[in-house]
Amino acid sequence: MSRAKKTFSRYAASAAVLSLIEEVELTPKPGLVDKNNNGAHQDLTIDLMRKSAVSLKETFEGIAYISYGRSSSILLREEISAIGRQGEQRMLETTGGVNTHKGAIWAIGLLVSAAAMGKGCYSIEEMVSLAGETARYSDRHCPITATNGKRVSEKYGVSGARGEAQQGFPHIMNVALPTLEKSRAVGLPESSALLNALLALIIHLNDTCILHRGGPEALGFAKKQAAAALEAGNLSYIQTLDEEFTKRNISPGGSADLLAATIFLDKMQPNRMDNNMLKELQYTQ
């Protein structure tokens, strides 16, 4: 058990970090940091985002290790939250105080925990369901802070990152994953399939990052333009959209977090996980 637990925890953490890096390196993206530019962000660079992602490996490994083989409970919720808060602190130390991945720590941390509860054998449906169950527990030790996401959620009556998780990540299950699978099925390159998934998320998600920066007008503009880009299906349109989002200070950061979470879930399907790791898990369980 101990060896399998360590092996799986390392694997899940590596998959989580790689998912964050693959999301930021996906190029071009509208209003977001990528290989071409920093999008609508003055304080972010792709190198900073990479360093931030790598700094979270220990956090995700700790969440996986403590969750391995357990059931969802308020105690586990509080334990992984404490690890997540330590991860946030490490992230901020790495980035010089810039919030690069707070939303991703929440979303992917819950999914890492759910994957570990199932010892790597759960389906995507089981993982998101368990993650939602865990997210619905209250953390009695978490200090109440007025975050941008919380303020925006209350102001505009949208669910935000917390509600998305508590509902079992409906935008991943009903939007991002189906779009990704459909794009792959028609033979699109992986980068194009992921871009389509991102555009679909922007269309359907009431992204609190966009609302925080520009309110409902910016959100409506982003949704309309993302729909046109998805229909056009070419990179030049997305590059134009990137320029327009940047000019208008629009950054679909919530959609980017959900794309990274989608990539993670895709990697953690039992039939897609590394065969060598699966063999080691079977040998040591």
Rank of each mutant, 00 (worst) to 15 (best):
K51H: 12
S81V: 12
A115V: 04
E79L: 09
E58G: 05
M117P: 01
K51T: 06
Y65K: 14
S113A: 15
G97D: 02
G118M: 08
L56Q: 02
R85Q: 07
A114P: 08
G103C: 00
V98N: 00
G120V: 12
R77H: 11
R90V: 13
I105D: 02
A115W: 02
E88M: 08
S72P: 10
A53I: 15
S52G: 06
A116N: 14
E125W: 00
R77C: 12
G109S: 08
A82L: 14
L110V: 05
R136M: 13
G132I: 11
A82F: 11
G103P: 00
G84E: 04
V54R: 03
S113Q: 05
E58A: 14
I108D: 01
G109K: 11
G62N: 09
I108C: 01
G69F: 04
Q89E: 11
K51Q: 14
S67M: 10
R85P: 05
K51R: 14
L111C: 12
M91N: 02
Y68E: 08
A116P: 02
S72R: 07
I63G: 06
S55L: 03
L92N: 10
E58L: 11
I105F: 07
S123V: 00
L130C: 10
E79C: 07
A104D: 07
E88S: 09
R90S: 14
S67H: 06
E88F: 07
A53P: 10
Q86F: 11
S81R: 15
I74V: 13
L75C: 00
A135F: 07
M127H: 04
G120S: 12
K102T: 13
M117L: 15
G120F: 12
E58D: 11
E125V: 00
L111I: 15
A131G: 15
S52D: 05
I66L: 11
R70A: 10
Q86P: 00
A64F: 00
G118A: 05
G109F: 05
K119C: 09
V112D: 00
F60Y: 15
T59R: 02
L92W: 09
A115D: 00
T100E: 01
S81C: 14
A107V: 11
L76G: 12
V112H: 01
